[in-house]
């Protein structure tokens, strides 16, 4: 029951994330959508880990822990890039200022 429930949830979360990535063009929320997609994949892995006979299997748990850190790294850089991108495109003269 539990595994089934969380598998379905993971699938639907993946769908929501993918939908967001496809339709959203606003950068921060597209990033949120990608994060939801990644979380769905993590959930898949943990369901598998939890249902392993003699488990829980530590390998997927460790993989997800690594995945979470990678996700936060990507998110942090993406947010910095978004902020700078907006600062540049918000200028009336994109090539002006301190761009040489």
């Amino acid at each position: 029951m539990t595994g089934w429930l969380f598998s379905v949830t993971a699938g639907l979360l993946f769908a929501i994330g993918l939908y967001g990535v496809l339709i959203r063009t606003e950068l921060v929320r597209r990033l949120l959508a990608a994060n939801v997609m990644a979380t769905a994949v993590f959930l898949f892995l943990i369901v598998v880990a939890a249902e392993t006979p003699d488990g829980p299997d530590p390998v997927p748990q460790a993989m997800v822990l690594t995945g979470i850190v990678i996700a936060v790294s990507l998110t942090a850089f993406a947010l910095a890039l978004i902020r700078h991108f907006r600062a540049v495109t918000g200028e009336s003269d994109p090539e002006g200022g301190d761009d040489d």
């Binding site: 993946f14 950068l27 597209r30 990033l31 898949f44 995945g67 700078h84 540049v88 090539e95």
Partner: peptide, 25 residues
């Protein structure tokens, strides 16, 4: 540097982001 570079980097990042999620899946 400059607008085009940031814009291109942004597009690259989103492609790569979704690509890596699919790979992990």
């Amino acid at each position: 540097r400059g607008r085009e570079a940031l814009s291109a980097a942004m597009q690259y990042l989103y492609f790569a982001l979704v690509g890596s999620i699919l790979f992990l899946l």
